[in-house]
């Protein structure tokens, strides 16, 4: 019994120590972001690696998610004779929920895991220690540009995801199932509110981008510098990011769209 309590206590202390380290780490990274201003090339390179190279998975996933929404939405709406509202259903689903959440999950799997593995391997091969001994702060030169690029990339990727989703829904609804073209677009235009729907969706992606990238760079920087340690850190990035995104989505949705 005492051993069990001891283990619980040790686990609890370890958890809070790690949480503290993660916040100190974040504070140091944010503090150093100002130094990137004269060297935009460092961020641009990471925008390419994290953002542009994630485009394919975002484009394809967005298209298919939109097509499925179009199909499912039509099958339900047609029972009520409301298939002209398909555009609204597809657009609101994507802009409010699916765009930010699915993009964030895909981003965590594709770019977040790559970030953790890259930084973790740099630690394991003493590249970070080598930079420190050259009087170069790896938090400012390695972590900072990646953090900023990841944070900026996700809102853009989510916007592209939603746009592709709308096109996918249009293709299925209007192209294949015969929904009226004008009704699809006009209802979408009249029912989707810029502030309540689009801006709130963008705020979600900004929050998700911040959290997912923070988890990814911290897990890499804090990992045990062995091949097993890097592997575990990469897994943790995907799992913790997914849980954080889903939990935060609930909180943000409750705050933004609660009309009760």
């Amino acid at each position: 019994m005492i051993e069990l309590l001891r283990r619980l206590g040790r686990g609890g202390i370890g958890f809070f120590q790690r949480l503290g380290r993660a916040h100190l780490f974040l504070a140091r990274v944010l503090w150093g972001l100002g130094e990137l201003y004269p060297r935009p090339g460092l961020v641009v390179a990471q925008l390419w690696s994290l953002g542009v190279l994630s485009l394919l998975i975002i484009l394809v996933s967005g298209l298919f998610v939109g097509m499925v929404l179009g199909l499912q939405g039509y099958n339900t709406l047609v029972d009520f004779g409301a298939e002209e509202s398909l555009g609204v259903l597809v657009a609101l689903s994507l802009v409010r929920e699916l765009g930010p959440v699915v993009s964030a999950l895909l981003f965590a799997g594709r770019a977040g895991s790559a970030l953790t593995a890259e930084i973790g391997l740099m630690k394991a091969t003493e590249q970070l220690a080598g930079m420190e001994m050259m009087a170069v702060d790896p938090l400012r030169r390695v972590v900072g540009p990646r953090f900023l690029a990841g944070w900026l990339s996700l809102p853009l990727l989510a916007a592209i995801f939603s746009a592709m989703g709308v096109l996918g829904g249009y293709f299925v609804g209007v192209g294949l199932l015969g929904v009226d073209d004008g009704a699809f677009w006009s209802q979408m235009q009249s029912k989707v509110d810029l502030r309540d729907d689009v801006v709130n969706g963008v705020i979600k992606t900004i929050v998700f981008g911040f959290v997912v990238t923070w988890i990814a760079v911290f897990e890499g920087y804090d990992c045990v510098p062995t091949s097993e340690g890097v592997g575990r850190a990469t897994t943790r990035t995907v799992v913790h990011s997914a849980l954080a995104v889903l939990a935060l989505d609930f909180v943000l949705t409750a705050l933004m769209f609660n009309e009760g």
């Binding site: 740099m122 091969t125 003493e126 590249q127 220690a129 080598g130 930079m131 420190e132 001994m133 050259m134 009087a135 702060d137």
Partner: peptide
């Protein structure tokens, strides 16, 4: 410390080159 490190070099066992 960083000013001092600029006057010190260190050769790591692995080389620690930026890959």
């Amino acid at each position: 410390l960083y000013a001092l490190r600029r006057r010190m070099g260190m050769l790591f066992q692995s080389g620690a080159l930026l890959t």
